[in-house]
């Protein structure tokens, strides 16, 4: 039986996924909107460059903020994509394929983003 959007699953993993979407959504409301406000509205791409990020990442606060936002946003987005796909794909074989693809994309992008944020050391490059 396909998931009913807007209706709450009764139990199990689907209930936790349902709850996660709402809780991560509320968290992202602050994380993502503040991020968009600072990085895309107040400072636009003409101001932001390597040095801007280097100064931002000098203290652990924004790194922690970005890591948290990265994980919540990727999991929220990919789980949303899964919900949409499950609405239109009903054979269990193709469902498994899609879930595998989503998991792989999630793993790759979470690893990429986390490594990028944690290992960033501006001191390794000579600043102009």
């Amino acid at each position: 039986m396909p998931e009913l959007s807007g209706s709450r699953p009764e139990s199990g993993l689907e209930l936790y996924a349902w709850l996660f979407m709402r809780l991560s959504g509320i968290a992202l409301l602050f994380l993502a909107l503040i991020h968009v406000l600072i990085m895309h509205v107040l400072h636009d791409v003409t101001v932001i460059d390597f040095q801007f990020v280097a100064r931002r990442y000098a203290t652990p606060f924004w790194r922690t903020y970005d890591i948290l936002m990265l994980w919540l946003a990727v999991l929220h987005g990919l789980n949303g994509l899964r919900t949409i796909i499950m609405d239109y794909v009903h054979s269990s074989g193709w469902r498994t394929v899609w879930v595998a693809v989503i998991l792989l994309v999630g793993l790759v992008f979470l690893a990429m983003g986390s490594v990028g944020i944690v290992t960033f050391q501006p001191g390794r490059f000579a600043l102009r």
């Binding site: 460059d49 390597f50 040095q51 990020v53 990265l70 946003a73 990727v74 987005g77 990919l78 949303g80 994509l81 949409i84 994309v105 992008f109 990429m112 983003g113 490594v115 990028g116 944020i117 290992t119 960033f120 390794r124 490059f125 600043l127 102009r128």
Partner: peptide
């Protein structure tokens, strides 16, 4: 909007990762 933001998010993660390659 969810699909659109997700697509941008993935591109955005890829481009921000490039910061590790220097200015």
């Amino acid at each position: 909007t969810g699909i659109g933001v997700l697509l941008f998010l993935l591109v955005h993660i890829a481009d921000i990762t490039l910061i590790g390659w220097g200015p």
